[in-house]
Design a protein around this nucleic acid. Structure first.
Lengths: 343, 343
DNA sequence: TAAGTAACTGGGAGCGCTTCCAGAATTTTT
DNA sequence: AAAAATTCTGGAAGCGCTCCCAGTTACTTA
């Protein structure tokens, strides 16, 4: 409550500042009786140690920064990010770290935020969302002296720890599923092809077609931007190519695309089948419910935090990379059920 | 980069620590020539002052905490929160504050997080989302010694600054609009009636009916929970009462409700008209596009931060409260256009 | 030209912790 | 019983800044 210091607590409990510090930090070499006495005083006074002082003396802030680069501004558009943030926040809380949030919307933002991230004694580590091609933010962050973990495969650097899902394989699986259901003119709506996620998912799409002897058709590949409207517009461009199935690189885009399909009077999955990516709650609620690739978003965030904390507390070994598994979730939009092809 | 201190910069530029400090903080009383020399050294060395030391010496952390209480866990369900967070983050950035994010999911979370919020020298102020009835978090926060601003009218305390939109009036306007269009059996899907937002919007609904001489019908009022599924389920319970229009306390619930309506083969707005609340991007994309109450979510967050910073920097005056305006946005779902009643 | 004022600069005393180290109290070993 | 090891405790030296205050220099004014 008031402006108590360690020294005050020490006086009140008849010991020295050092002893109080030991008690607070749960260190050994304090007699049980003394420990209890000190704890009682702390309890009674409602004392809380000053974090700034602690951080200065111990050179540890117990704070990590979550950096969402510019262009990942779909932060407030795609439910993916809130979910990721939730997982990250939960893990921070579990391990007693505080989460600092750095949303970069504009280049000006970046110029204001970056120096803050650089301040020594401020962050123990940084978790940064993989950005776009040409974005040098991650490189700049790596050059700082604090540990960095990237969420998603970074575009440029390969000497940094990162965590990702196996987007290529997941997309491969999604498209192969469509092929097995008999579709032959399979289109894809990619994310903006300036990010590794989008490129990897597109790569999976291409490989699936090739491995199954299907012809590639440039007209069946259109670029979206991970937004509903982007998916909608992409689908409008895709329709003339008359696909019988579409793999969308995100659920949100799939929803937009299905809206476009509905508008021209076509049915899902009878006329065009769909597979999405993410398995957001909204996938279940879609009409028809969306077949999609499930990725463990919240756990992804948790694992990312754990990687970072490991780096912080156990030193910087050679960069590690963690790849998490995904899973195809079959619902109605791919037509598998209608065709009786689901066990 | 390295472990430079003010003292090092001082030596290298041939001045004292104090002078370097003045330069860094843009204070007067430094000769132009000296200032430039020091700045050059700082530039060359890539020096950044240690934030922990600065916070300790100045008793200011330049950090504010955003606290989202338990039960507001719709954080990752309702696009409202990401948008709010975005506004808050932007304002923090503008005013050179860092944003700490505290998502409380469980009571255990709260017990871990609260002591951290209490640490002196950690946060300069706290922005907390208004919680539910019975939640004592806000009271606990007010008892801390740092400034607090509540986003949304708080349930219990009235001696705290808060910012809100005029939910009663907004809801009143929405329902009045439906009445003017000729609807007479108007139902409402409320949020969980444990929060002030929900109660206020319900209050507006009731007043609109009363002021227009319409009979209240308990069966026309059902409780949702601000989720899509909640809206869907609420609508199913509402259908037997055969409303000709529905006011949903959020866009997301309106979407769910419209899904339920579609499922039983009824049309929007011909059979049942809808008005939502929030004016999220998704409202435009709905089928039919949703008539709704627009509230300036991002600006709301920005204003909240400004209030808090004002409190931090100019001392704690008697609690202030700011009420922001809303606006009815007429689209298709209310039937006004079909009826040719829009100018 | 001397006195007065304003513009600068540096030293020192903190801010409230952690941590090292020396010493005291206690227990174990010989 | 003394000696050695172990457990416990307090003092002091920082951590790297800010900010007050005294002192120095430059510029006005009488």
């Amino acid at each position: 409550m008031s402006e108590l210091t360690l020294e005050d607590i020490a006086k009140r409990s008849g010991v020295s500042r050092s002893t109080v510090s030991r008690v607070i930090n749960g260190q050994p070499y304090v007699r049980q009786e003394v420990r209890e006495r000190v704890l009682r005083v702390i309890q009674e006074t409602g004392f809380h140690p000053n974090l700034a002082a602690r951080a200065l003396a111990s050179q540890r802030s117990w704070m990590i920064g979550l950096v969402l680069p510019r262009n990942v501004s779909s932060f407030f558009t795609d439910p993916y990010f809130p979910r990721l943030t939730q997982g990250i926040a939960r893990a921070c809380n579990l391990y007693n770290y505080t989460l600092g949030l750095f949303l970069i919307s504009t280049p000006i933002d970046e110029e204001k935020i970056f120096p803050r991230l650089s301040r020594r004694g401020f962050l123990d580590g940084i978790l940064v969302q993989s950005g776009e091609v040409g974005d040098q933010l991650i490189e700049r962050l790596i050059n700082l002296t604090i540990p960095v973990v990237v969420a998603g495969r970074p575009f440029h650097s390969n000497d940094v720890s990162y965590i990702d899902v196996d987007n290529v394989t997941a997309a491969y699986e999604a498209v192969t599923h469509l092929i097995q259901l008999g579709y032959r003119k399979i289109g894809t709506i990619t994310g903006a092809l300036t990010s590794t996620v989008s490129l990897d998912r597109k790569e999976g799409y291409l490989r699936a077609l090739l491995n199954n002897g299907l012809r590639l058709d440039k007209n069946l590949i259109v670029e979206g931007d991970f937004t509903e409207t982007g998916g909608y517009l992409a689908m409008q461009r895709l329709l003339p190519a008359q696909p019988d199935a579409v793999f969308a690189a995100s659920d949100v885009m799939a929803l937009g695309a299905m809206r476009a399909v509905r508008e021209v009077g076509l049915r899902v999955p009878e006329d065009i089948a769909f597979v999405g990516f993410d398995d957001l709650p909204v996938a279940t609620l879609a009409n028809p419910p969306l077949t999609t690739i499930h990725q463990p978003i919240a756990e992804f965030g948790e694992r990312a935090v754990e990687m970072l904390i490991d780096l912080i507390e156990n030193g910087v070994k050679p960069p590690r990379c963690v790849i998490m598994d995904t899973e195809l979730v079959i619902r109605e939009s791919c037509g598998a059920r209608a065709k009786g092809m689901v066990v």
